[in-house]
Design a protein around this nucleic acid. Structure first.
Length: 325
DNA sequence: GAAGAGGACGTCG
DNA sequence: CGACGTCCTCTTC
């Protein structure tokens, strides 16, 4: 599958998970803003006709979504994952095996498409689920408060490496956001309004998907916890830093590039990308100026409390939970 | 130069 | 009041 997308290639040419941003600002005033002049998605990406597929709305900027949006597909981690582009789904050979007749081919193709649909839906739900936990927001945009909307916008800025667009949607609840048309979005942000609108639509589709099928059906696709867990979690108490770190550690599929276990039994972990972990923590706590200096200060506060300590053999960026998971 | 340690003080729920 | 967040100085890697 061609992944060509001139506006979205990373300048250093490295492939990485969409959640992993290699260059991060240490300047706190720019905490939410990556370099913006060289990362804008090209207009051609945004000018494609709208595509929809199997009830899952895939926005016109689908290429961008595929490469940058882990909520749709993690291409780098699932090379065999189904395509998310309608045209490519319908045009591609559904299976490797040769088929005896056109009729048979049609049936198999239909079957394969169903499987692909299930997989894509599962991936979307899983990634929305992950984002919900990270941001501590509800899956359904209709339930969002103004602050939730801001968090979601900051998260979208982070994912797409957009300039600051959240300012155009201040004082807006999720319901307000959902009542806006694509034109309304474009009026707020000429360049990125349609993209934000499309992204919001993915979330709404995910909520609708959930509406259509009970949680049990999603169990297999939803990693290690179900949708209902998310629904319970987002409304819970404010999270502690140590809990947040453990959440990341328990999701190696998503976060192993920024934090991972060194020795899970002993509770020893290593922060692989200090800037990214700090940034994720900042998003979660709505603290745009968060950096590793401050995050590590908070970790050190745990020394006295006996929650986290440095391992016996102290190494940079390596810490240990006093009570292992 | 980044990470680590920890004091001091501010903020917020 | 607790749990950071912020800012700072000094030390260690």
């Amino acid at each position: 599958m061609s992944m060509g997308s001139p506006g979205c290639e990373h300048t250093d040419g490295t492939a990485y998970s969409p959640l992993y941003i290699s260059h991060l600002h240490t300047d706190t005033r720019m905490a939410w803003l990556d370099k913006t002049d060289d990362i804008k998605p090209s207009r051609s990406l945004l000018g494609l006709p709208e595509l929809s597929w199997m009830g899952v709305y895939l926005p016109c900027n689908d290429r961008l979504v595929m490469e940058e949006n882990p909520w749709v597909l993690k291409m780098t981690e699932s090379p065999a994952a189904p395509p998310s582009r309608t045209l490519e789904v319908s045009q591609a050979k559904p299976c490797q095996t040769q088929l005896p007749s056109y009729e048979m081919e049609g049936q198999v193709e239909e079957h394969c498409l169903e499987q692909v649909q299930t997989m894509v839906e599962g991936e979307v739900l899983k990634d929305v689920d992950t984002a919900c936990k990270l941001l501590n927001i509800a899956p359904d945009p209709l339930d969002w408060s103004c602050m939730h909307v801001q968090k979601w916008l900051l998260w979208t800025e982070h994912l797409y490496r957009l300039p600051q667009v959240s300012t155009f949607f201040q004082e807006m609840s999720g319901r307000d956001l959902c009542s806006m048309t694509e034109t309304d979005f474009r009026q707020r942000s000429l360049q990125f309004g349609d993209m934000l609108y499309a992204n919001l639509d993915i979330w709404r589709s995910a909520a609708a998907m959930k509406e259509r099928s009970p949680p049990e059906d999603r169990k297999s696709a939803a990693d290690d916890d179900s949708w209902s867990d998310v629904m319970c979690k987002y409304s819970s108490q404010p999270i502690h830093l140590w809990q947040f770190l453990r959440e990341l550690l328990l999701k190696p599929h998503h976060y192993s590039r920024c934090i991972r276990w060194v020795n899970k039994d002993k509770g020893i972990f290593k922060i692989e990308d200090s800037a990214l972990v700090a940034r994720l923590w900042g998003i979660r706590k709505n603290r745009p100026a968060m950096n590793y200096d401050k995050l590590s200060r908070s970790i050190r506060q745990y020394y006295k409390k006996g929650i986290i300590r440095k391992p016996d053999v102290s190494r940079r960026l390596v810490y240990q939970f006093v009570k292992p998971v």
